[in-house]
Amino acid sequence: MFIRSKLCLVSLVIGMLCAPSQLIAAGGADVNLEKGKWSFSGPFGFFDKAALQRGFQVYREVCAGCHGIDYLAFRNLGDLGYNAAEIKAIAAEYEVMDGPDDDGEMFMRPARPADQIPNPYRNDNEARANNNGALPPDLSLIAKARANGPDYLYSLMIGYEDAPETTEVPDGMYYNNAYPGHLIAMPQPIYGDDVEYSDGAPTTTAGIASDVTNFLMWAAEPKMEVRKRIGVAAVFFLSIFVIMSYFAKRRVWADLH
């Protein structure tokens, strides 16, 4: 009986694990995903702060031309290793709208750490109008909003290539081997040497793509490090609890013999 009950459990668990396969299916079968080696993978995963800072630089100098990152505020940049003064200085480089003032007018002022990082466009319509009718998605959750987020983003950024003979690429579209359907409205964002890193890290296409992927993963899941840290402790505690309760159960049941 025991074996059968166990089988029943195991098959249920397998069934449950099969469910997420729908996620992978959503990516489409014929796309190329590069499996990156990410510092944030695994139960002891962590964010590489230097990569995050470089990734943020890439976001500012490349992505932010078209993409907003609405759910991030400047104060969040503390996670990247910036101190309060540095964050204040970064924020001050941006202008945000405030108001109305005493005369009822809206006005621009330098951003403060509590402000959200401003979007390049005032609204979606302006964004579309400036991008051939395509809406550049917000990047704050993009790493979680796509199946296999980090691998996908990385592959997408290095996945631009010449279309095969059989594919006709319409005007304003580009061929990408990682994008579902292959035709993407975003022009190739990274060519290599697009930014200058102060720490001398490589500025190859792959290097930059990897840095910005790190940054976007952090942006989507900023609590990941603390989550995994608490998780290791919780699993440790509960494992001991499982063992203790098992022996406690055996002790209590022993007198039924």
Partner: peptide, 30 residues
Amino acid sequence: TIKDMFGVAVFLLLLAGAVFFFPNAMGHPD
């Protein structure tokens, strides 16, 4: 009660595994 306690412990261990290490595995990216 003690037998249920053991079951609870195993259940919570599995739940913690999901919550802390695969929190979005049963959700949908969209």
